[in-house]
């Protein structure tokens, strides 16, 4: 089961996730997006890509392979404090 959480402290109410989602999972309510149709989410994570504040969290989504990322980039990412 997919679960979506919105970090309201991080979110700035830009509404880009609402616009970009192909399945209209989100709805803007009082400057914060609320996932109203979670069962329609197919885990494309376009909302993660467009969110300027990384305010979205998904659970239960199949993490697709990303072998196109260099090992040295992964190493740097793991070492950023």
């Amino acid at each position: 089961m997919i679960e979506i959480r919105v970090d309201e402290n991080a979110c700035n109410g830009c509404g880009l996730c609402v616009k970009d989602c192909p399945m209209q999972v989100y709805e803007m309510r009082d400057t914060v997006p609320v996932p109203v149709r979670v069962a329609s989410c197919m885990g494309c994570l376009s909302c993660h890509e467009i969110c300027p504040a990384q305010a979205l969290e998904h659970r239960g989504v199949h993490p697709s392979r990303r072998h196109y990322i260099d090992i040295r980039v992964c190493e740097m990412l793991n070492r950023v404090i």
Binding site: D7, N9, A10, C11, N12, G13, C14, G15, T31, P52, A53, Q54, A55, V80, I81
Partner: peptide
Amino acid sequence: ILPALIAGEVPALSRKSVCSECDRTM
């Protein structure tokens, strides 16, 4: 960060962008 590094630990801080720390709304 520095006291944690000296103690041999890595602090767990938020790794999000500046937008997440900004108090403005659209």
